[in-house]
Design a binder for these strands. Sequence first.
DNA 1: ACCTGAACACCGTTCAAGT
DNA 2: ACCTGAACACCGTTCAAGT
Lengths: 217, 217
Amino acid sequence: VIEGAKARRRAVRSKPRGRYHHGDLRRALIDAARLLVEREGRQALTLRAAARMAGVSQAAPYRHFPDKDALLAAVAEDGLRALAAWLREAAARHEDEPLVRLQALGVAYVRFAVTNTAHFRVMFTAVAAEPDPYPSLSEAYDEVAGLLLEAIVACQRGALVRDGKPRELALAAWSIVHGLADLAVGGQVPRMLGEEREPEALSKLVTSRLLTGLAPR
Amino acid sequence: VIEGAKARRRAVRSKPRGRYHHGDLRRALIDAARLLVEREGRQALTLRAAARMAGVSQAAPYRHFPDKDALLAAVAEDGLRALAAWLREAAARHEDEPLVRLQALGVAYVRFAVTNTAHFRVMFTAVAAEPDPYPSLSEAYDEVAGLLLEAIVACQRGALVRDGKPRELALAAWSIVHGLADLAVGGQVPRMLGEEREPEALSKLVTSRLLTGLAPR
DNA sequence: ACCTGAACACCGTTCAAGT
DNA sequence: ACCTGAACACCGTTCAAGT
Protein backbone atom coordinates (compact mmCIF):
# COMPACT_ATOMS: atom_id res chain seq x y z
CA VAL A 1 0.00 0.00 0.00
CA ILE A 2 2.80 2.35 -0.92
CA GLU A 3 1.25 2.80 -4.33
CA GLY A 4 2.07 6.15 -5.78
CA ALA A 5 4.43 7.02 -2.98
CA LYS A 6 7.47 6.87 -5.19
CA ALA A 7 5.77 8.93 -7.87
CA ARG A 8 4.82 11.48 -5.27
CA ARG A 9 8.31 11.73 -3.94
CA ARG A 10 9.61 12.26 -7.44
CA ALA A 11 7.11 15.05 -7.98
CA VAL A 12 8.15 16.59 -4.71
CA ARG A 13 11.83 16.52 -5.48
CA SER A 14 11.58 17.66 -9.08
CA LYS A 15 9.98 20.99 -8.34
CA PRO A 16 12.05 22.84 -5.81
CA ARG A 17 15.21 23.43 -7.85
CA GLY A 18 16.77 25.39 -5.02
CA ARG A 19 16.16 24.35 -1.44
CA TYR A 20 13.18 26.64 -1.21
CA HIS A 21 9.51 26.20 -1.96
CA HIS A 22 9.01 22.57 -1.53
CA GLY A 23 6.40 21.79 -4.12
CA ASP A 24 3.99 19.71 -2.15
CA LEU A 25 5.24 19.70 1.39
CA ARG A 26 1.89 18.57 2.73
CA ARG A 27 2.06 15.42 0.67
CA ALA A 28 5.73 14.89 1.52
CA LEU A 29 4.98 15.16 5.23
CA ILE A 30 2.17 12.63 5.05
CA ASP A 31 4.41 10.20 3.17
CA ALA A 32 7.21 10.71 5.66
CA ALA A 33 4.84 10.22 8.57
CA ARG A 34 3.50 7.00 7.10
CA LEU A 35 7.01 5.73 6.56
CA LEU A 36 7.98 6.53 10.12
CA VAL A 37 4.90 4.78 11.46
CA GLU A 38 5.41 1.65 9.40
CA ARG A 39 9.13 1.42 10.04
CA GLU A 40 9.36 2.26 13.71
CA GLY A 41 5.85 2.35 15.09
CA ARG A 42 3.47 5.07 16.03
CA GLN A 43 5.55 6.64 18.74
CA ALA A 44 8.26 7.31 16.16
CA LEU A 45 5.89 9.59 14.29
CA THR A 46 7.05 12.93 15.41
CA LEU A 47 6.40 16.23 13.71
CA ARG A 48 10.08 17.03 13.82
CA ALA A 49 11.14 13.69 12.39
CA ALA A 50 8.65 14.05 9.54
CA ALA A 51 9.99 17.54 8.83
CA ARG A 52 13.55 16.24 8.91
CA MET A 53 12.66 13.46 6.51
CA ALA A 54 11.04 15.96 4.16
CA GLY A 55 14.10 18.17 4.39
CA VAL A 56 12.49 21.21 5.95
CA SER A 57 12.79 22.97 9.27
CA GLN A 58 10.86 21.92 12.33
CA ALA A 59 8.49 24.84 11.98
CA ALA A 60 7.61 24.25 8.34
CA PRO A 61 4.88 21.65 8.97
CA TYR A 62 2.83 24.30 10.71
CA ARG A 63 2.26 25.94 7.35
CA HIS A 64 0.25 22.84 6.39
CA PHE A 65 -1.06 21.34 9.60
CA PRO A 66 -2.35 23.27 12.59
CA ASP A 67 -0.89 20.66 14.95
CA LYS A 68 0.31 17.09 15.25
CA ASP A 69 -3.20 15.69 15.51
CA ALA A 70 -3.99 17.12 12.11
CA LEU A 71 -1.04 15.30 10.59
CA LEU A 72 -2.14 12.10 12.31
CA ALA A 73 -5.62 12.57 10.90
CA ALA A 74 -4.16 13.02 7.43
CA VAL A 75 -2.12 9.85 7.82
CA ALA A 76 -5.23 8.01 8.97
CA GLU A 77 -7.22 9.33 6.05
CA ASP A 78 -4.49 8.33 3.65
CA GLY A 79 -4.60 4.80 4.99
CA LEU A 80 -8.37 4.61 4.83
CA ARG A 81 -8.35 5.70 1.19
CA ALA A 82 -5.78 3.01 0.48
CA LEU A 83 -7.87 0.43 2.33
CA ALA A 84 -10.97 1.46 0.40
CA ALA A 85 -9.11 1.14 -2.90
CA TRP A 86 -7.78 -2.22 -1.80
CA LEU A 87 -11.29 -3.39 -0.90
CA ARG A 88 -12.74 -2.08 -4.13
CA GLU A 89 -10.15 -3.98 -6.08
CA ALA A 90 -10.89 -7.20 -4.24
CA ALA A 91 -14.62 -6.69 -4.77
CA ALA A 92 -14.17 -6.00 -8.47
CA ARG A 93 -12.84 -9.51 -8.99
CA HIS A 94 -16.23 -10.95 -8.02
CA GLU A 95 -18.77 -8.62 -9.55
CA ASP A 96 -21.50 -11.17 -10.12
CA GLU A 97 -21.03 -13.35 -7.06
CA PRO A 98 -22.17 -11.19 -4.15
CA LEU A 99 -21.42 -13.74 -1.47
CA VAL A 100 -17.92 -14.43 -2.74
CA ARG A 101 -17.47 -10.70 -2.97
CA LEU A 102 -18.48 -10.20 0.65
CA GLN A 103 -15.99 -12.79 1.74
CA ALA A 104 -13.30 -11.26 -0.46
CA LEU A 105 -13.85 -7.94 1.31
CA GLY A 106 -13.22 -9.64 4.62
CA VAL A 107 -10.06 -11.28 3.40
CA ALA A 108 -8.79 -8.01 1.94
CA TYR A 109 -9.57 -6.11 5.14
CA VAL A 110 -7.62 -8.52 7.32
CA ARG A 111 -4.80 -8.74 4.80
CA PHE A 112 -4.47 -4.98 4.76
CA ALA A 113 -4.36 -4.80 8.55
CA VAL A 114 -1.75 -7.51 8.90
CA THR A 115 0.37 -6.03 6.13
CA ASN A 116 0.27 -2.50 7.52
CA THR A 117 -0.15 -3.11 11.22
CA ALA A 118 1.03 0.21 12.59
CA HIS A 119 -0.73 2.21 9.91
CA PHE A 120 -3.94 0.24 10.47
CA ARG A 121 -3.85 1.12 14.16
CA VAL A 122 -3.32 4.79 13.42
CA MET A 123 -6.25 4.68 11.03
CA PHE A 124 -8.64 3.68 13.78
CA THR A 125 -7.19 5.49 16.77
CA ALA A 126 -5.86 8.68 15.27
CA VAL A 127 -8.24 11.20 16.75
CA ALA A 128 -11.35 11.43 18.86
CA ALA A 129 -14.42 11.23 16.65
CA GLU A 130 -16.40 13.45 18.92
CA PRO A 131 -16.96 16.84 17.34
CA ASP A 132 -15.75 15.47 13.97
CA PRO A 133 -12.91 17.94 13.51
CA TYR A 134 -11.68 16.35 10.27
CA PRO A 135 -14.55 16.03 7.80
CA SER A 136 -12.46 14.47 5.06
CA LEU A 137 -11.27 11.79 7.48
CA SER A 138 -14.91 11.18 8.20
CA GLU A 139 -15.61 10.72 4.50
CA ALA A 140 -12.82 8.18 4.31
CA TYR A 141 -14.47 6.10 7.04
CA ASP A 142 -17.75 6.42 5.19
CA GLU A 143 -16.13 5.05 2.09
CA VAL A 144 -15.03 1.89 3.88
CA ALA A 145 -18.36 1.49 5.66
CA GLY A 146 -20.19 2.05 2.39
CA LEU A 147 -18.35 -0.72 0.61
CA LEU A 148 -19.41 -3.24 3.24
CA LEU A 149 -22.97 -1.99 3.21
CA GLU A 150 -23.19 -2.25 -0.57
CA ALA A 151 -21.87 -5.79 -0.47
CA ILE A 152 -24.54 -6.78 2.04
CA VAL A 153 -27.30 -5.16 -0.01
CA ALA A 154 -26.12 -6.98 -3.12
CA CYS A 155 -26.29 -10.26 -1.22
CA GLN A 156 -29.77 -9.53 0.00
CA ARG A 157 -30.86 -8.69 -3.54
CA GLY A 158 -29.68 -12.14 -4.59
CA ALA A 159 -31.37 -13.74 -1.58
CA LEU A 160 -27.95 -14.87 -0.37
CA VAL A 161 -28.29 -13.05 2.92
CA ARG A 162 -31.38 -12.93 5.08
CA ASP A 163 -33.75 -9.98 5.11
CA GLY A 164 -33.32 -7.35 7.77
CA LYS A 165 -31.94 -3.86 8.08
CA PRO A 166 -28.86 -3.91 5.87
CA ARG A 167 -27.05 -1.47 8.11
CA GLU A 168 -27.41 -3.78 11.08
CA LEU A 169 -26.15 -6.75 9.13
CA ALA A 170 -23.30 -4.68 7.75
CA LEU A 171 -22.34 -3.63 11.27
CA ALA A 172 -22.11 -7.28 12.26
CA ALA A 173 -19.92 -7.98 9.25
CA TRP A 174 -17.72 -4.97 9.90
CA SER A 175 -17.41 -5.91 13.57
CA ILE A 176 -16.27 -9.47 12.99
CA VAL A 177 -13.79 -8.54 10.32
CA HIS A 178 -12.46 -5.49 12.11
CA GLY A 179 -12.24 -7.38 15.37
CA LEU A 180 -10.33 -10.21 13.77
CA ALA A 181 -8.00 -7.70 12.13
CA ASP A 182 -7.36 -5.89 15.40
CA LEU A 183 -6.83 -9.09 17.37
CA ALA A 184 -4.48 -10.39 14.69
CA VAL A 185 -2.49 -7.17 14.69
CA GLY A 186 -2.28 -7.39 18.47
CA GLY A 187 -0.97 -10.93 18.36
CA GLN A 188 -4.05 -12.44 20.00
CA VAL A 189 -4.86 -15.01 17.35
CA PRO A 190 -2.23 -17.60 18.30
CA ARG A 191 -3.31 -17.10 21.90
CA MET A 192 -6.83 -18.25 21.12
CA LEU A 193 -6.05 -20.71 18.35
CA GLY A 194 -2.85 -22.11 19.79
CA GLU A 195 -1.12 -21.50 16.48
CA GLU A 196 -0.44 -18.87 13.85
CA ARG A 197 -2.48 -18.82 10.66
CA GLU A 198 -2.57 -16.98 7.34
CA PRO A 199 -4.80 -13.90 7.12
CA GLU A 200 -6.78 -15.47 4.27
CA ALA A 201 -7.56 -18.68 6.14
CA LEU A 202 -8.27 -16.74 9.29
CA SER A 203 -10.68 -14.39 7.64
CA LYS A 204 -12.54 -17.14 5.83
CA LEU A 205 -12.78 -19.18 9.00
CA VAL A 206 -14.35 -16.37 10.93
CA THR A 207 -16.60 -14.87 8.25
CA SER A 208 -18.01 -18.22 7.22
CA ARG A 209 -18.92 -18.71 10.86
CA LEU A 210 -20.82 -15.44 10.73
CA LEU A 211 -22.51 -16.55 7.56
CA THR A 212 -23.79 -19.88 8.78
CA GLY A 213 -24.03 -19.04 12.44
CA LEU A 214 -22.84 -20.48 15.70
CA ALA A 215 -26.08 -22.32 16.40
CA PRO A 216 -26.37 -26.04 15.56
CA ARG A 217 -27.61 -27.12 12.09
CA VAL B 1 -13.88 -0.13 37.00
CA ILE B 2 -12.17 1.91 39.63
CA GLU B 3 -12.93 -0.75 42.20
CA GLY B 4 -10.36 -0.87 44.90
CA ALA B 5 -8.64 2.26 43.69
CA LYS B 6 -9.76 4.28 46.64
CA ALA B 7 -8.77 1.55 49.05
CA ARG B 8 -5.39 1.35 47.43
CA ARG B 9 -4.82 5.06 47.66
CA ARG B 10 -5.71 4.95 51.33
CA ALA B 11 -3.21 2.16 51.88
CA VAL B 12 -0.61 4.14 50.03
CA ARG B 13 -1.13 7.30 52.03
CA SER B 14 -1.37 5.66 55.42
CA LYS B 15 2.04 4.07 55.36
CA PRO B 16 4.64 6.71 54.63
CA ARG B 17 4.30 8.80 57.78
CA GLY B 18 7.10 11.08 56.63
CA ARG B 19 7.42 11.96 52.95
CA TYR B 20 9.81 9.08 52.43
CA HIS B 21 9.31 5.43 51.58
CA HIS B 22 6.10 5.45 49.73
CA GLY B 23 4.58 2.15 50.73
CA ASP B 24 3.47 0.84 47.40
CA LEU B 25 4.69 3.28 44.80
CA ARG B 26 4.29 0.76 42.02
CA ARG B 27 0.59 0.44 42.74
CA ALA B 28 0.23 4.22 43.15
CA LEU B 29 1.87 4.82 39.78
CA ILE B 30 -0.41 2.37 38.00
CA ASP B 31 -3.47 3.99 39.57
CA ALA B 32 -2.24 7.44 38.65
CA ALA B 33 -1.52 6.33 35.10
CA ARG B 34 -4.97 4.85 34.73
CA LEU B 35 -6.52 8.03 36.04
CA LEU B 36 -4.54 10.14 33.60
CA VAL B 37 -5.51 7.90 30.70
CA GLU B 38 -9.20 7.93 31.54
CA ARG B 39 -9.36 11.63 32.28
CA GLU B 40 -7.26 13.08 29.49
CA GLY B 41 -6.51 10.30 27.06
CA ARG B 42 -3.52 8.18 26.35
CA GLN B 43 -1.16 10.95 25.35
CA ALA B 44 -1.62 12.49 28.79
CA LEU B 45 -0.07 9.42 30.33
CA THR B 46 3.39 10.59 30.99
CA LEU B 47 5.88 9.08 33.38
CA ARG B 48 6.48 12.48 34.91
CA ALA B 49 2.80 13.24 35.34
CA ALA B 50 2.23 9.88 37.02
CA ALA B 51 5.14 10.55 39.35
CA ARG B 52 3.78 14.01 40.12
CA MET B 53 0.37 12.57 40.89
CA ALA B 54 1.92 9.99 43.19
CA GLY B 55 3.90 12.72 44.92
CA VAL B 56 7.38 11.54 44.06
CA SER B 57 10.21 12.84 41.94
CA GLN B 58 10.44 12.24 38.21
CA ALA B 59 13.15 9.67 38.69
CA ALA B 60 11.34 7.59 41.30
CA PRO B 61 9.28 5.50 38.85
CA TYR B 62 12.49 3.98 37.52
CA ARG B 63 12.83 2.11 40.78
CA HIS B 64 9.69 0.16 39.79
CA PHE B 65 9.51 0.22 36.01
CA PRO B 66 12.46 -0.08 33.64
CA ASP B 67 10.81 2.33 31.23
CA LYS B 68 7.55 3.89 30.15
CA ASP B 69 6.51 0.85 28.13
CA ALA B 70 6.65 -1.24 31.28
CA LEU B 71 4.24 1.14 33.02
CA LEU B 72 1.96 1.01 29.99
CA ALA B 73 2.05 -2.76 30.10
CA ALA B 74 1.14 -2.69 33.78
CA VAL B 75 -1.78 -0.36 33.07
CA ALA B 76 -2.92 -2.67 30.29
CA GLU B 77 -2.67 -5.68 32.55
CA ASP B 78 -4.60 -3.90 35.26
CA GLY B 79 -7.39 -3.19 32.78
CA LEU B 80 -7.45 -6.75 31.50
CA ARG B 81 -7.76 -8.13 35.02
CA ALA B 82 -10.64 -5.74 35.61
CA LEU B 83 -12.27 -6.78 32.35
CA ALA B 84 -11.87 -10.44 33.25
CA ALA B 85 -13.45 -9.85 36.66
CA TRP B 86 -16.26 -7.92 35.01
CA LEU B 87 -16.84 -10.76 32.55
CA ARG B 88 -16.73 -13.39 35.26
CA GLU B 89 -19.32 -11.47 37.21
CA ALA B 90 -21.62 -11.21 34.21
CA ALA B 91 -21.18 -14.91 33.51
CA ALA B 92 -21.90 -15.87 37.09
CA ARG B 93 -25.41 -14.48 36.78
CA HIS B 94 -26.25 -17.17 34.22
CA GLU B 95 -24.52 -20.28 35.44
CA ASP B 96 -26.99 -22.79 34.06
CA GLU B 97 -27.94 -21.07 30.81
CA PRO B 98 -24.82 -21.29 28.66
CA LEU B 99 -26.24 -19.41 25.72
CA VAL B 100 -27.48 -16.53 27.83
CA ARG B 101 -24.12 -16.55 29.52
CA LEU B 102 -22.31 -16.26 26.20
CA GLN B 103 -24.41 -13.31 25.24
CA ALA B 104 -23.92 -11.72 28.65
CA LEU B 105 -20.17 -11.92 28.12
CA GLY B 106 -20.57 -10.01 24.87
CA VAL B 107 -22.67 -7.34 26.49
CA ALA B 108 -20.23 -6.98 29.36
CA TYR B 109 -17.25 -6.76 27.01
CA VAL B 110 -18.79 -3.95 24.98
CA ARG B 111 -20.03 -2.19 28.10
CA PHE B 112 -16.57 -2.25 29.57
CA ALA B 113 -15.04 -0.82 26.42
CA VAL B 114 -17.56 1.98 26.09
CA THR B 115 -17.28 2.85 29.78
CA ASN B 116 -13.49 2.92 29.80
CA THR B 117 -12.68 3.88 26.24
CA ALA B 118 -9.17 5.16 26.68
CA HIS B 119 -8.19 2.38 29.05
CA PHE B 120 -9.66 -0.22 26.70
CA ARG B 121 -7.51 1.08 23.87
CA VAL B 122 -4.39 0.97 26.00
CA MET B 123 -5.24 -2.59 26.95
CA PHE B 124 -5.05 -3.74 23.36
CA THR B 125 -2.33 -1.51 21.96
CA ALA B 126 0.03 -1.07 24.87
CA VAL B 127 3.01 -2.98 23.62
CA ALA B 128 4.16 -5.17 20.78
CA ALA B 129 3.31 -8.80 21.50
CA GLU B 130 6.29 -10.06 19.60
CA PRO B 131 8.90 -11.46 21.95
CA ASP B 132 6.34 -11.36 24.80
CA PRO B 133 8.32 -9.11 27.12
CA TYR B 134 5.59 -8.98 29.78
CA PRO B 135 4.55 -12.50 30.75
CA SER B 136 2.00 -11.38 33.32
CA LEU B 137 0.34 -9.17 30.71
CA SER B 138 0.20 -12.24 28.55
CA GLU B 139 -1.53 -14.16 31.31
CA ALA B 140 -4.11 -11.42 31.59
CA TYR B 141 -4.97 -11.79 27.91
CA ASP B 142 -5.19 -15.52 28.41
CA GLU B 143 -7.67 -14.99 31.19
CA VAL B 144 -10.02 -13.04 28.92
CA ALA B 145 -9.60 -15.46 26.04
CA GLY B 146 -10.17 -18.37 28.39
CA LEU B 147 -13.49 -17.03 29.62
CA LEU B 148 -14.81 -16.85 26.07
CA LEU B 149 -13.52 -20.28 25.26
CA GLU B 150 -15.13 -21.81 28.35
CA ALA B 151 -18.44 -20.22 27.48
CA ILE B 152 -18.34 -21.73 24.00
CA VAL B 153 -17.45 -25.16 25.34
CA ALA B 154 -20.34 -25.00 27.80
CA CYS B 155 -22.69 -24.16 24.95
CA GLN B 156 -21.41 -27.05 22.90
CA ARG B 157 -21.87 -29.38 25.84
CA GLY B 158 -25.51 -28.34 25.96
CA ALA B 159 -25.85 -28.70 22.19
CA LEU B 160 -26.62 -25.00 21.98
CA VAL B 161 -23.70 -24.31 19.67
CA ARG B 162 -22.66 -26.45 16.73
CA ASP B 163 -19.79 -28.91 16.89
CA GLY B 164 -16.40 -27.81 15.69
CA LYS B 165 -13.10 -26.75 17.15
CA PRO B 166 -14.08 -24.66 20.15
CA ARG B 167 -11.07 -22.41 19.73
CA GLU B 168 -12.13 -21.48 16.24
CA LEU B 169 -15.67 -20.71 17.32
CA ALA B 170 -14.37 -18.74 20.27
CA LEU B 171 -12.14 -16.71 17.96
CA ALA B 172 -15.19 -15.80 15.89
CA ALA B 173 -17.04 -14.76 19.03
CA TRP B 174 -14.09 -12.75 20.33
CA SER B 175 -13.66 -11.08 16.96
CA ILE B 176 -17.22 -9.91 16.60
CA VAL B 177 -17.44 -8.63 20.14
CA HIS B 178 -14.01 -7.04 20.16
CA GLY B 179 -14.60 -5.50 16.76
CA LEU B 180 -17.90 -4.02 17.83
CA ALA B 181 -16.27 -2.67 20.97
CA ASP B 182 -13.42 -1.09 19.03
CA LEU B 183 -15.71 0.40 16.39
CA ALA B 184 -18.00 1.76 19.09
CA VAL B 185 -15.09 3.32 20.96
CA GLY B 186 -13.95 4.87 17.71
CA GLY B 187 -17.34 6.38 17.02
CA GLN B 188 -17.99 4.22 13.95
CA VAL B 189 -21.32 2.78 15.04
CA PRO B 190 -23.50 5.80 14.25
CA ARG B 191 -21.68 6.02 10.94
CA MET B 192 -22.89 2.57 9.92
CA LEU B 193 -26.20 2.56 11.73
CA GLY B 194 -27.13 6.17 11.15
CA GLU B 195 -27.82 6.53 14.86
CA GLU B 196 -26.38 6.00 18.30
CA ARG B 197 -27.40 2.96 20.32
CA GLU B 198 -26.88 1.55 23.80
CA PRO B 199 -24.00 -0.89 24.28
CA GLU B 200 -26.41 -3.59 25.45
CA ALA B 201 -28.68 -3.37 22.43
CA LEU B 202 -25.70 -3.09 20.14
CA SER B 203 -24.01 -6.14 21.52
CA LYS B 204 -27.14 -8.25 21.43
CA LEU B 205 -27.88 -7.16 17.89
CA VAL B 206 -24.48 -8.20 16.65
CA THR B 207 -23.97 -11.38 18.68
CA SER B 208 -27.40 -12.75 17.87
CA ARG B 209 -26.47 -12.26 14.23
CA LEU B 210 -23.40 -14.38 14.81
CA LEU B 211 -25.52 -16.98 16.53
CA THR B 212 -28.12 -17.41 13.83
CA GLY B 213 -25.97 -16.41 10.88
CA LEU B 214 -26.20 -14.03 7.99
CA ALA B 215 -27.51 -16.61 5.58
CA PRO B 216 -31.27 -16.81 4.88
CA ARG B 217 -33.51 -19.07 7.03
C1' DA C 1 3.12 32.87 0.32
C1' DC C 2 6.29 29.82 2.40
C1' DC C 3 10.09 28.75 5.20
C1' DT C 4 13.97 29.41 9.00
C1' DG C 5 16.12 30.13 13.73
C1' DA C 6 15.67 30.72 18.23
C1' DA C 7 13.08 30.12 22.20
C1' DC C 8 9.82 27.95 25.85
C1' DA C 9 7.77 24.41 28.36
C1' DC C 10 7.64 19.62 28.66
C1' DC C 11 9.24 14.55 28.18
C1' DG C 12 12.02 10.04 28.76
C1' DT C 13 16.06 8.58 30.77
C1' DT C 14 20.52 8.57 33.40
C1' DC C 15 23.46 9.17 37.26
C1' DA C 16 25.76 10.86 41.12
C1' DA C 17 24.29 11.96 45.55
C1' DG C 18 21.37 11.86 49.60
C1' DT C 19 18.56 9.25 53.75
C1' DA D 1 16.76 -0.17 49.66
C1' DC D 2 14.50 3.75 47.91
C1' DC D 3 14.28 8.39 46.50
C1' DT D 4 16.03 13.32 44.86
C1' DG D 5 18.29 16.95 41.81
C1' DA D 6 20.49 18.08 37.99
C1' DA D 7 21.53 17.13 33.44
C1' DC D 8 21.00 15.59 28.32
C1' DA D 9 18.74 14.91 24.16
C1' DC D 10 14.40 15.29 22.17
C1' DC D 11 9.46 17.01 21.34
C1' DG D 12 5.29 20.22 20.26
C1' DT D 13 4.45 24.80 19.46
C1' DT D 14 5.14 29.89 18.80
C1' DC D 15 6.93 33.95 16.75
C1' DA D 16 9.77 37.34 14.86
C1' DA D 17 12.45 37.46 10.90
C1' DG D 18 14.01 36.19 6.32
C1' DT D 19 13.24 35.32 0.77
